[in-house]
Amino acid sequence: MTTDTRTPETVAAPSGRSTLVLRRFARNRSALAGAVVLVLLFVLAFAGPYLTPWSYSHVDYGALRSAPSAEHWWGTNRIGQDVFAQTVRGLQKSLVIGLLVAVLATGLASLVGACAGYFGGWTDRLAMFFVDLLLVFPSFLVIAIVSPRLRSAGWIAFVGLLTVFAWMITARVVRSMTLSLKEREFVRAARYMGVGPFRIIWRHVLPNVASFLIIDATIQVGGAVMSETALSYFGFGVQPPDVSLGTLIASGTGAAVTYPWMFFFAAGLLVVFVLAVNLVGDGLRDALDPTAKGAAR
């Protein structure tokens, strides 16, 4: 997997600004902690499978429901699969799904939102009707209906589905930001200098909503992982023998009290992951917002 290099927080901003933002970000201790945790999770997810002799699908009939031990670090589940191997595999899936959905949804949202806002008129009206329509369905219901049909297409199709229902609110915000940017003098200036509309969107509008988009992407990561987990819990998402954090938690829920290791490792990692992403997002918001600390006159 190479997607891990595309974590949203590394999206480039102009050099002078980005160092400033980085400095402010680094000063925020909880955000920095979140970033470190994220990196560690990636290391765990992608290096983990090489650390253990067990594969996530291998069944060890000699150890059913065994507690954590030297053999099975995090114990085994009720059919004798290694919980560490499974959790690491599930983490991998959840991380990738979360990031892919976030990047795709944010991209789609910025495209639709910026075009609707900039061109106005019927483009705007149609786009917004479509957005409202998608908002009226709880996305969860539609994904649940459709996903059994897409089982054969695998988790990529699942990523697509999650994306389709994750961009609407962002698009609305981008649209309203574009509406006000459009009236800003530097956009007007570009127009009077003969710069074409798509060029203006690309060069002036999108860079100026970039800070919002970056933050939104970090929030989307958490949202996507939670949706995936929720859907997998009901059996609508990642399908066996493959696992995600969601399916692991779902299958371990019943055993939470009696065999806690089947449940709490996956659940704990999930909470830690989403929490870390949220902290990073919150830190970025403060770092990017020049008014975060009241400036004096």
């Binding site: 909470v271 992951f273 929490l275």
Partner: peptide, 18 residues
């Protein structure tokens, strides 16, 4: 409060229910 609400928001509904 911020940390607590982030932790809550990072917990799936069913996990919290369990």
């Amino acid at each position: 409060v911020t940390l607590a609400s982030f932790a809550l928001l990072s917990t799936p509904v069913f996990l919290l229910a369990v």
